[in-house]
């Protein structure tokens, strides 16, 4: 059975408050903030992109897990904001952690769940004994058109997971629930995504997460109350709380992994960053349910049991990294995002 051998996260240092964005568009910041349950979001520096965030997360994962990066046999980077349309981000990461050249690498795209899709691939390669370690990364510098509702939440960050045979947490099982549901997209060559507004809710986010979670819990014979922690994809602060309630989870089970209110939606990084935060505090024996969601649409669900090795693992303290922040105003935000043409 495949395990999580290590993990690393990276969230850029800059933040913008939802109220600051609302101010520009003449909206009531407090009501926008409470409506989304998001207070501020991370903003990449002018020289940060999905590749640099992926590299920082990957280096943190390698450092913490103390593995030899040369033994990584596969690297997958899931993102919807790869710096190149054609030319992999994964090779940049592979070179930057000195894992080259004996490995396979590829970029994935599946809206916000491309990173967890990479995890599933790594699990398969490890369990089939094709590789010793696999690294899956979910990272984004999410785009949002100025003035669009997404602008309040589209954030930057990422997490890297190293999958191997023996690690700090066993991945007991994983399943996916996938349909063709066009709730959110970005056309080739377009700078900003479009979305189906309220259509992104019930038939998209909620249907897929609930279905995947239920399928997996049934398969492994678990119920909501059996879990110590649960992490759900976080497009805003409200959705994961509502989906948790629908599945019978209590607030305290999801709080640890809920980062969206303080960093926004990191897209492909979202579920994986939440899971990384849970691992930062988990104890041996803790059981974790993690369910991602990617528009278009699909959910990957993971049932995880933390083992004794976590005690000796050099945890990163992601929440402390997130606390090291600097606020920017809207003008600076636009400059950092390269919006001035």
């Amino acid at each position: 059975m495949a395990s999580i051998v290590g993990y690393g996260a990276y969230v850029p240092r800059y933040r913008i408050k939802v109220e600051e964005i609302a101010r520009i568009w003449g909206r009531d910041g407090k009501s926008v903030s409470s409506g989304l349950y998001v207070f501020e979001k991370s903003v990449p520096a002018i020289d940060e992109d999905t590749a640099t965030i992926s590299v920082e997360a990957a280096r943190n994962a390698v450092r913490s897990s103390k593995i030899d990066a040369k033994k990584i046999g596969a690297i997958y980077v899931g993102s919807e904001s790869h710096p190149y349309a054609v030319k992999p981000t994964a090779t940049i990461v592979a070179e930057a952690i000195e894992a080259t050249p004996e490995l396979t690498a590829a970029d994935y795209e599946f809206a916000c769940k491309a990173g967890t899709a990479g995890m599933q691939n790594c699990i398969a390669l490890v369990e089939s004994k094709r590789i010793t370690y696999g690294m899956a990364i979910g990272a984004d510098v999410a785009q949002a058109a100025p003035g669009d509702a997404l602008e309040y939440t589209a954030a930057a960050g990422g997490a890297a997971f190293i999958i191997g045979n023996e690690g700090i947490a066993e991945i007991n099982d994983t399943i996916s629930f996938t349909t063709d549901t066009p709730d959110f997209w970005r056309r080739e060559g377009e700078p900003y995504p479009g979305h189906g507004e309220r259509f992104t809710g019930a038939p998209a986010y909620f249907r897929h997460i609930v279905s995947a979670a239920k399928m997996l819990m049934e398969k492994v014979g678990m119920k909501a109350s059996d879990y110590d922690y649960a992490v759900f994809h976080q497009p805003n602060g409200k959705f994961p709380m509502r989906v948790a309630k629908m599945l019978g989870f209590e607030k305290k089970q999801i709080e640890e992994g809920l980062l969206c209110p303080i960093i926004g939606n990191t897209y492909s990084g979202s579920t994986m960053l939440g899971l990384a935060c849970v691992l930062d505090v988990a104890k041996p024996g803790d059981r974790i349910l993690a369910v991602s969601y990617g528009s278009g649409a699909g959910s990957d669900a993971f049932d995880i049991t933390v083992n004794d090795a976590i005690e000796d693992y050099e945890r990163q303290n992601i929440r402390k990294m997130i606390e090291n922040k600097e606020y920017v105003d809207y003008g600076t935000y636009m400059k950092l995002r390269g919006e001035f043409k």
Partner: peptide, 15 residues
């Protein structure tokens, strides 16, 4: 690890 420069809008990105 950061972006250092890029070769215009269409060229390569140098890290």
């Amino acid at each position: 690890f950061r972006r250092i420069q890029e070769d215009g809008k269409r060229g390569a990105i140098y890290y």
